[in-house]
Design a protein around this nucleic acid. Sequence first.
DNA 1: CAAGTGATTTGAATCGTTCTAATAACATCC
DNA 2: GGATGTTATTAGAACGATTCAAATCACTTG
Lengths: 348, 348
Amino acid sequence: MESQTPVGRKITLNDIAAGCGVSRATVSLVLRGSPLVNKLTRARVEEELRRQGYVYNRAAANLRRRTSSSVALVVNELANPFFAEFAAGVDEALGEAGFVTLLGNTGESVGREQAVLQSLIEHGPGGIILSPAEGSEAHAVLATVGAHTPVVLFNRELGGTLPEYAHWDRLMLDNQRGARLATEHLIARGHRRIAFFGSHDDSSSCRERHAGYLQAMQAAGLPVEPHWRVECALTRVDAARAAHALFEGGAAPTAAVCYNDVAALGLMLGLNQRGVRPGHDFAITGFDDIAEAAMSTPSLSTLSTAPRLRGRQAAELLLARLRDPQAQAGTVIAPVELVVRESSCPLS
Amino acid sequence: MESQTPVGRKITLNDIAAGCGVSRATVSLVLRGSPLVNKLTRARVEEELRRQGYVYNRAAANLRRRTSSSVALVVNELANPFFAEFAAGVDEALGEAGFVTLLGNTGESVGREQAVLQSLIEHGPGGIILSPAEGSEAHAVLATVGAHTPVVLFNRELGGTLPEYAHWDRLMLDNQRGARLATEHLIARGHRRIAFFGSHDDSSSCRERHAGYLQAMQAAGLPVEPHWRVECALTRVDAARAAHALFEGGAAPTAAVCYNDVAALGLMLGLNQRGVRPGHDFAITGFDDIAEAAMSTPSLSTLSTAPRLRGRQAAELLLARLRDPQAQAGTVIAPVELVVRESSCPLS
DNA sequence: CAAGTGATTTGAATCGTTCTAATAACATCC
DNA sequence: GGATGTTATTAGAACGATTCAAATCACTTG
């Protein structure tokens, strides 16, 4: 029967060393599989490790080695499936590399973002993957994370500008192109009065998508009415509420390019409440391709972003940076792909 | 202009102490707001802290104090909105208490669960909140986390039994009662041939829900056909695929109690593909009340579990345990509430 | 003025690792 | 036999904080 210790102090290298008559240093070498140690000693030590139920104290090791084995992941809305998938991807890739994920959720609040970053940075993560809250400012973030910890920005830019010495990497989606593709698609289906729905212009990704939309509209020589730009918070409930604004004012749109899938699904709900049938009387596109997009009725035409893959990619970027801290900072623009489903019906 | 340090070593207590001519001990006292230190010294030290841009090294402090300021959160499927919400709730409550969340996602794999727990435990979390993967065994989990780290089990039981010395708390949903309520509701709406759809019997929560269903059926004197129990993985896609099995064999059911919302939404999709209209020709109930439940067409009748609140609650349980490690281990059964929407139509 | 008091400050040990430089034991070579 | 390697092992100082006992200082006070 293995001797287990139901209660008592934690086992340390000293206990093991004492337990089999070698020095602490030797045990440490065994732990890290050094070739310097004799086969027999190694076996004896390993047996003792098992017997006493030793567990490695990585925090102590990190302190001594001045390294880190964690990465902080700070997202603006974990409850959004896009970010949940993203987080799963990040955690997966970090885990494979032997890192652990420190989670922080800001709920789209700049204040909480500050608090969360502050708390996480004190735990000494090797780096930070940050999807900023709307309205988050570069100088504020830099002030709390400091210049020592590498940052990968995901999804959104920060407000203001970073000093040159902070070389932060970026992983962004091809927002402008995506929104342009969606708009062109709706135009090709015969729509001429097309709205842009959701989010706020505070967010860089929103501005980019809006720009793509405008680009396509202008290229097609189509006019754009002011009341075709409706802002809302990124929840289904708020999007449903905001839907009605599309029909107040002049000529009502027959289609909408939505900031993302959550906004699009909320818009569908709002339209249904008005008796307008999405995918029938009104065409809609989303952005993200979250799992629900394929499953909703009507299914949602959208831009696929492969959030889990993006998560892995963000993790890879950070790991690369940790390997080479001096490398030139880079921006990766992840491609997006138009997925046509039922919601982007032709003009009836 | 504040002097910032774009590059260089990390600032420690020693730097601060040297920088304003006091001892390391004094600076430490200032940091923790001790009343022992003189007002003037405190001011001088605080100024220096700001000037040098000091950041606290919580790992070092934890090592010395033999405490922990982190909690590991291990979930079986982060991409499931139910768990994403749960995670957000956990992180929120832990953050308020000054703890940081170490994330681990197992993707419903017992192997990954082991690996994830192993890696997390080495970072010395104060405790673990675990929603086990299907088929996870008590003795295996205990062996890797050890008896020193308190655990709160959420949502599912582990297989096998725990030794008495491991007093782990539990936060479970009132699965049996919930499923019974759902079934009784469908019976009250006139259904007599009711299926139980989704998940696998490996999972304790699934067995409990199934038991609740059987209980209601028996109480109403209704027969249960074997092919009315259809298992599937907890993704919409697999649920949609599995839907067809309901109609193979004898008398087809007119309603289904689903293991959870994801299964229910997938079932809807599968029914639509067969030309059966959920909420019209076929009644459905879910479990969890994820955000999409209210938004789907038809909207989904389900059992509300308030996942974010459960997350907070799990965190509270763990924090209470950290405050009093010797307290009797407890099991909390969180109430669930039937939310009637469109999907549970009367028998047509 | 010696001793007592309260308010501040500090030296040194410690947490559980890693790592450098030193030591020890033993074989090899001229 | 002494110089030279080779191979295994280890003592002890870090890492960046906390903490306790002890020291220092400025005042009272009998």
